[in-house]
Simulated assay, not measured.
Amino acid sequence: MEFTTERLMIRPFKNTDLQDVFAIYNNEDTCKFLLHNQWTHENMEEKFNKKLANGLLSQESMLSLAVVYKNKVIGDLSVWYTDMKDTVEIGYSFSNEVAGKGLATEAVSSLVVQLFDVFNVHRLQAKLDARNIASQKLCERIGMRKEAHFTQDFWNKNEWTDSIVYGMLASDLKK
């Protein structure tokens, strides 16, 4: 899967993307609300190779896509099928250096359109740490609705955290 938006190229990861992706995931602020810790020089190749291997969305495999802006990878989009029929979950991370430019909104909203139009998914959802206000705002900007707030339901990084679930149907797309 590869597509472009007004300012972005969204494509599978390439070997040459390692340093750009490391810059995203080596940042403590970026990883604060993610399920994994920040990448280190010792584990970056192992973690990046998993992204390289995720080039196809199927019931058995996750899709990982690079978001490229001005020839640099500034974001990572992930999609995987849930156990529910025709339902996918999305995840995303972006470089702090592009915050406030609308690039994350542009990338995620275009991914959502692709998922509904090309993959004919019935529903998509995003589960996030309730403290991640920027991610909540992104979900709302692209037309997702907040469907649930779970209190201290997830044990992550040695603490109980709240989770929020956003959902969307094709009929929710902003025209």
Rank of each mutant, 00 (worst) to 15 (best):
E159W: 07
D76Y: 10
L57C: 02
V165D: 07
I10L: 03
Q125R: 04
E42M: 03
M9S: 13
V108Y: 07
W39S: 03
M44H: 13
L8R: 01
E140S: 09
G55K: 02
N120T: 14
S135H: 12
E140G: 08
Y166A: 04
L65A: 01
A130D: 13
L103P: 02
G75P: 01
K14S: 10
R11C: 03
E140W: 10
S171D: 14
K47G: 14
Q152R: 11
F154P: 12
W39T: 04
N158G: 09
E147D: 06
A53T: 11
K85T: 15
R7F: 04
M62I: 15
E97W: 10
N43M: 13
K32G: 03
W39F: 07
I74Y: 00
Q59K: 12
D162T: 01
K127Q: 12
M168P: 05
A134H: 05
L77N: 02
G167R: 10
K127N: 12
K32V: 06
I24S: 01
W160K: 07
S93N: 09
A130C: 13
S93E: 05
R141L: 13
Q114N: 10
A170T: 13
A134L: 07
E6N: 08
E159S: 11
G102F: 01
D83H: 15
F116Y: 08
M9V: 13
N120L: 15
C31A: 02
L35C: 15
F22L: 05
Q125L: 04
E45L: 14
S110C: 03
D172F: 04
L52N: 01
N120I: 14
I164T: 05
L138S: 11
K85G: 13
V112I: 07
T40F: 04
G167I: 10
V108F: 08
M62G: 12
N158I: 09
N49Y: 08
K174A: 15
N49I: 10
D129S: 14
K146R: 06
N54Y: 06
A66T: 04
F33T: 10
S163P: 15
M144Y: 04
S58F: 08
C139Q: 03
G100E: 06
S163G: 15
G143Q: 06
F22V: 05
G143K: 05
I24G: 00
C139D: 02
N54S: 11
H36G: 15
Y81P: 02
D162F: 01
A104W: 01
I10T: 04
M84E: 14
L18H: 11
L124R: 02
A53M: 11
S109F: 01
I90L: 07
V113H: 07
F154A: 15
R7H: 06
A130H: 12
A148K: 07
G143R: 07
